[in-house]
Amino acid sequence: MEGDLYESLRMELRRGSLTLGVLVRLREERYGYTLRQALAADGLEMEESTLYPLLRRLETQGLLVSEWREEEKRKKRFYKLSADGEAMLLRLLAEWRRISISLEKIIEF
């Protein structure tokens, strides 16, 4: 029971962070598999079943651009941050830093 509660609260805590992590990593062009590898190396594990729909959603929202390219004899979709995505990322990072500072103050008490 406590384990389920922890997992549920942990998922809520991670949800927004994962989107931020994806946007940061896509300052550099990547395709799904390499993006997932990079996030895992950063400590942000994410299922492909969550990542790929997220990438499509961010692209629909105008934050990413993509193109299909053949690499190693297979067609892969490469994603990169758009201009709007870059602007959004800067705002979200500023908000993230504000939240971190506030939390640090609370934790110090």
Binding site: G32, Y33, E48, Y52, R56, W68, R74, K75, R77
Partner: peptide, 13 residues
């Protein structure tokens, strides 16, 4: 488009 992406993801896996 989605099926092409899914196929690539599964083949990579």
């Amino acid at each position: 488009d989605i099926i092409a992406e899914l196929r690539d993801m599964i083949l990579t896996r």
